[in-house]
């Protein structure tokens, strides 16, 4: 079973994402901000990270840069999942090493489509 780390400061979003991803046969870990997510990666490196952008303590982009800067680990797939829905944000995220990008609101179909595009399904 593949492990997906769901990073979002909203409990509701984490719950919705968890439900969809569990149906798609993922094991789920959760983090509430970028720092929390880095710690989670330290403990148990996920196969994929579903990543919000705007969060307290450390935002999604900072997390992504810190993650991609780490040597010697197998890099997980990172799928942004954010209300930031303009081209500038999308480009920034992809340039920083994100593999896919979901603009909120999302549903099961979008998650499924994006996850299969990056070869996770």
């Amino acid at each position: 079973m593949k492990l997906c780390l769901v990073v979002d400061d909203s409990k509701v979003i984490r719950k919705v994402a968890r439900r969809i991803l569990e149906e798609l046969n993922f094991e789920i870990d959760e983090a509430v901000d970028g720092q929390d997510a880095l710690d989670a990666c330290e403990r148990n490196l996920p196969d994929v990270v579903l990543l919000d952008w705007n969060m307290p303590v450390m935002d999604g982009l900072e997390f992504l840069k810190a993650l991609r800067a780490r040597d010697g680990i197998e890099q997980p797939v990172v799928v942004f999942c954010t209300t930031e829905n303009d081209m500038a944000h999308i480009r920034t995220a992809i340039e920083a090493g994100a593999n896919e990008y979901i603009m909120k609101p999302f549903d099961r179909e979008i998650i499924e489509a994006k996850f299969s595009q990056v070869g996770l399904l």
Binding site: M87, I90, R91, I94, E100, Y101, I102, M103, F106, E109, I110, A113, K114, Q117
Partner: peptide, 11 residues
């Protein structure tokens, strides 16, 4: 645009 279109192609 999120159903089936890879983000690179959207860009």
């Amino acid at each position: 645009v999120q159903r089936g279109l890879p983000i690179q192609m959207l860009i």
